[in-house]
Amino acid sequence: MTSGKNIFGKDLDKSITSDDILGKEVIDKDGAIIGVAEKVFFDSKDLEFIGIAVDKGLLKKGVSIGKDYIARVGSYAVFLNISLAYEIRGRQVFDKEGAFVGKVKDIELKESENSIAAIIVTHGISKITRIDSTYIETIGNNVILNLNKKEIVF
């Protein structure tokens, strides 16, 4: 909400300021609180709002999120329309029969979008394999593949 006189010639009642974003919790599509908005980015040429930076806490790397992934700015939090692809690191991977395959060590994104191209899965101490996203059935609390463990080459 803005106050005082303005020389915009526009109704500013529906606009928000950086104060309405900074310091608020950022909540993903699934309701998980991923951090706190710490920066607001504007394009240096056309001055358009392009996204926010999220502080994920002391021991975690922050993340920058483009405005297309922001669903709305509420009074108490900023809501995203996605779940962050990076958040699947460490989750368990099961084959289509439910057999444990390994854990997600890393992910490959399609360019710099939030879409997963492949997951890197570790099994045991040293076995690592890359699994293309076409073999992923579900990503949720964990990852379920659409193929059998025997078909995966470690």
Binding site: R91, F94, G98, T138, I139, G140, N141, N142
Partner: peptide, 11 residues
């Protein structure tokens, strides 16, 4: 004793 897994992969 086998695992029971939900739709989203929750054990």
């Amino acid at each position: 004793g086998i695992k029971v897994i939900s739709k989203s992969g929750h054990v």
